[in-house]
Amino acid sequence: KALIKVTPLRQEPTGKPITLEGVFAGVRGQAEGRLMQSHPLSLCNTSEDERQDSVFISIVKLESPERQVPQCLSLLEKARLAVKRGAKAVIFDVTDDAGAAVELREALLASGDYLLVVLVQAKDAEVLMGLVNRNEEATVRIEVMVEPPRWPHYD
């Protein structure tokens, strides 16, 4: 699992971090940067969303498949494009697109790409997207959550 520490910048000067949780879709690791929304259509190679100067982490709200948003690239290619444009990591809000989690995991596993991709949903996603909607600048730090082992019980 991924530990997501979010520090709103404008809230208080020190800005106590909010701790959220996500799941790594591929390799695990650490990253830190400003939270920046990417519209799903901006991660298409025809689109020219410019490379950001700041150190940032992209967050992409995936719409429900029923809404039939034009899928210009696969989710893996979208993640690659975000990183190519400077993102240190890519967070996908998969609340409305559960299938995206499976697609991303399989694609990342097969590709062997070293891309830091984190999936969030429900309450955790709601907090992140709430910050985006209110245009509240925040820094995000992604860490590996160290978990207890799940050894099988056997006699």
Binding site: L3, I18, T19, K123, E126, V127, M145, E147, P148
Partner: peptide
């Protein structure tokens, strides 16, 4: 190593719920 981490895992879970509640 995993023995010592066992406890922090539970605390992380409760910590996260408290944070989300605070923000939402």
């Amino acid at each position: 190593l995993w023995d010592t981490e066992e406890s922090s895992g539970r605390e992380l879970q409760s910590r996260r719920d408290a944070d989300i509640a605070h923000v939402l």
